[in-house]
């Protein structure tokens, strides 16, 4: 149910982001969605991309500190309130969202999220019949 996200440690210095992006370009990896928050000395660049396992290997080989994280990719109906409905269902189960970002795929909104309880989230998604995208499907639709 979860998909692989790349989490890259970035020093807050000009040139560190471009080094990662260039390595992905050289490796022929396509970025689907990304998020980076600004903190003090460093940040974590989070990426959804084609072939995350190979991308992770390639970055590691280039000496870039990276790890794979399991995140959920929920598909939203294209109408107002769709995100509110999904998040409400999770919060009513007492699930806390650690971070969230979104992108559009074929006109549909996709929510990428990580919670404080992956197992509980998985069960809630199943019980409530929320639409999610598996890694295989994402790869095919990108």
């Amino acid at each position: 149910m979860t998909i692989h996200q790349l989490s890259v440690f970035l020093e807050n210095r000009s040139g560190t982001l471009v080094r990662v992006l260039q390595q992905l370009k050289v490796s022929g990896i396509q970025i689907v969605a990304s998020s980076v928050a600004d903190t003090g000395d460093y940040g974590i660049l989070r990426l959804i991309c084609s072939e995350p396992l190979r991308a992770c290997d390639e970055l590691k080989k280039a000496g870039i500190p990276v790890t794979l994280t399991e995140v959920f990719a929920l598909e939203l109906d294209n109408q107002p309130g769709a995100a509110a409905e999904v998040v409400e269902k999770l919060s009513s189960e007492g699930i806390n969202i650690a971070y969230l970002y979104s992108f559009l795929l074929e006109g549909k909104g996709i929510l990428i999220l990580r919670t404080d309880d992956t197992e509980h989230t998985r069960k809630t998604i199943n019980a409530d019949g929320l639409k999610y995208i598996a890694e295989q499907e994402l790869a095919e639709r990108v």
């Binding site: 989490s7 460093y42 650690a98």
Partner: peptide
């Protein structure tokens, strides 16, 4: 230097 990227969590870092 970090040995490797071991987490995706700001709080852990």
């Amino acid at each position: 230097e970090l040995k490797e990227m071991f987490t995706d969590d700001y709080p852990r870092l």
